[in-house]
Amino acid sequence: MKNFFRTLFLILLLIGFQYNSNAAEKVEYLKTDWSFKGLFGKFDRASLQRGYQVYTEVCSSCHSMKYLSYRNLAEKGGPEFSEEQVKAIAASFEVKDGPNADGDMFTRPGKLSDKFVMPYENKKAAQAANGGAYPPDMSVLVKARGGGVDYIYSLLQGYEDPPLGVTLDDGVYYNKYMYGNKIKMANQLSDGLVEYSDGTNATVEQMSKDVTTFLMWAAEPHLESRHQMGFKAIVYLIILTVLVYFSMKKIWSRIETEV
C-alpha cells in the first residue's frame, strides 16, 4: 500500500508541476499577507469596508460591478455593513427604473435589491469615454487574471516611468506588472487620496490592499462559508476513512490476505 501511495503522490506531483509551469509570465508579484488565504481564511471586515470606500470613490467612476447588489454589502461573510448603512448607501445612487403607468422611464433612489449602478450606459459608451479602452467589469476580475489578488495588488502599485527606449502613445501608461507593460489606465492611487472613516492611514499600499480584498470578496462572496464547510467536510471524511480502514482490516482478517 505504501508503494501505491508513493506512486500516486509522484504522479499528482508531476501533474501539479505541469500546471504551475503553465502560468507562463514569470514576474515576481508584490506579496502581502492576505487574511482570506489558508484553511481558516476569513476576510478582514474593516479592510473590506475600506476597500468598498476605495471602489466607490475611485474605481467606480469607470469600472462597473454588474453582478453585485447593494444587499450583498450587508450579507454575512462580506463587508457586513449594517442594514441601515447599506440602505443609505443604496439610496445615495440614482437608479433608472420603469416604464411607469404612463410608459415613461424615471429615476428613483436605489434599494437593497438593486444591482450596483453602472458608470456607463453600455460598453460603447465606456470605450468612448476612455480613449477606446474598455474598463473591465470588476465583479470577477480577481479570478479572471492569472496572478489573482497578487497581480491586482501589484498592478495598482506598479506604475513607473518607462525605461529608456520605450515610447508610449498618448493615453498609454507604463506598468511593470501589466502584461506587455502597457496599460491604458492611468495611475489612480496616491497617498491620502481617500479619507478612511476608521482613521487608517490611506497610503497607496493600504488602499491597494483594501480594494483588492474587496475585489476578492466580490468575486468569491461565499469564500468564508466555503472554507468553513471545507474544514468540516475534510475532518468528517478523515474520521470516516479511519473508521472504514479499521472495519476493512477486521473484515479482511477473516482470510489470510494482506489488504
Binding site: 471545507g230 476513512t241 473484515i251
Partner: peptide
Amino acid sequence: IKDGFALLMFMIVFAFFVF
C-alpha cells in the same frame, strides 16, 4: 469495503480541490 476505503481517500483529495 476496500473500494469504499479507497473512495474516501479519493474524496479527501477531491474535497481539498473543491473547498
